[in-house]
Nucleic acid binder design. Structure first.
Lengths: 213, 213
DNA sequence: CTATATTGTTACTCATGAGTAACTTAAACT
DNA sequence: AGTTTAAGTTACTCATGAGTAACAATATAG
């Protein structure tokens, strides 16, 4: 009788259907694998990390990984996808918010320092360049250039509207990324240096440089 | 008779002694190997470069390399020695020349951009961190910290003498190195960007930042 | 001119780690 | 409830590349 009631009250579908469907579960697992892999790569570097290491962290065996990624390099490719989405998303926001070029640049820097706290992004920054497959390498280069180009545009806009002093936006964009990406190699949220002070110091250099006037 | 004259005119030692002694030749060859290795590492990265690749570039066979270096990692260690000497040498010069802290910082930057044109230095910058052997890793870290510390001192001096605006010298030194070392990854002397313009742009950021006042 | 240390070679060993084949267990849709 | 598809396992192959042993040549010093 009890059984009957249960069955009667809940629709058959609701009873048997799991909360997440297969595709969703797969995505979640893929993300976890990327996260474990990225953490491992940040610890020991891409080449010193074996797929067995990653599998161990994820508590599965190596061949299982191949159900989620094509091969080792594909992990980097997938990390790059995540990175590209987040960084371009940030740029979308910054541009949408508008304001003078210099202000947009400030907003971008603030957001970027936030973003590079994430292991997957850090992994991407550190290992972009390792790509062996020429097609993957080209794609990576293209995506990187795309982002750099958007920042260059913001700087260029700043020069036009007078908020940024006349300069070579290409070089400035590259130098800015060199510094920001460098940060991702050493900065840890847990350390003594707060997020705010780091952003402050970076913005102070960008706005004023270091000379005393 | 001719033979006799020759022998009589030139001292026996001068006749038979080669221009360079063994130790000197060895040093020159070691340097060439480091240069070939560094170029290979910059091309394809440390792990994608085999000792056979390096041997081929140097036109010898792999085991010969072991006459000059202990093992693969030792190449990085020896590149680091070269880098340490040159960078510390630059710092010696800069400090000896004297002047206000900010001027010394300028001089250092100028010299550093010059230095990172060299393949051995570039190789060191790119691959410092790859060290597997814990002793070698510690030594590397120590040497790197030493250099950073000296730049920090220069900045601190600038803050004291008023030539540098009040700031956190530690963070500024790190950010500066992040940017400068980033340059070493992409800048080539042969490219369209002249040495002078690059230094100009870097110095402009350091002195004024990019905001228009 | 000869003995000896140096520089180099050929031909291996040996560990590692990416990728695969074949099989088992678990989940989910009808 | 039973069939199918997904997810995972064990047990391999296979290439690569660091490092070595044993042997060959070349140059230097006495």
């Amino acid at each position: 009788m009890d059984k009957m009631n249960k069955k009667a009250n809940l629709s058959k579908a609701a009873l048997n259907r799991p909360v997440l469907n297969r595709e969703e579960k797969r995505q979640i697992k893929l993300d976890a694998i990327l996260r474990h892999a990225a953490a491992a790569f940040m610890d020991r570097g891409y080449y010193k990390t074996s797929l067995d290491d990653i599998a161990r962290r994820h508590k599965v065996t190596k061949p299982t990984l191949y159900y989620y990624v094509r091969n080792k390099e594909d992990i980097l490719v997938k990390c790059e996808e995540v990175a590209s989405l987040r960084i371009n998303g940030l740029l979308d926001e910054v541009v949408a918010t508008g304001g003078a070029g210099f202000v947009q640049l400030q907003n971008f820097i603030e957001g970027y320092v936030e973003i590079i706290t994430d292991d997957i992004i850090r992994c991407h920054i550190r290992h972009r360049g390792q790509r062996e497959d020429p097609i993957a390498r080209d794609a990576s280069l293209k995506m990187h250039r795309g982002i750099e180009h958007r920042v260059r545009e913001i700087i260029g806009k700043g020069v036009e509207d007078g908020s940024v002093r006349p300069c070579n936006p290409t070089i400035i964009a590259i130098l800015l990324f060199d510094a920001l990406n460098g940060i991702s190699a050493w900065y840890r949220d847990e350390g003594g240096l707060s997020h705010e002070e780091l952003v402050d110091q970076v913005l102070l250099i960008v706005t004023q440089g270091v000379r005393n006037n």
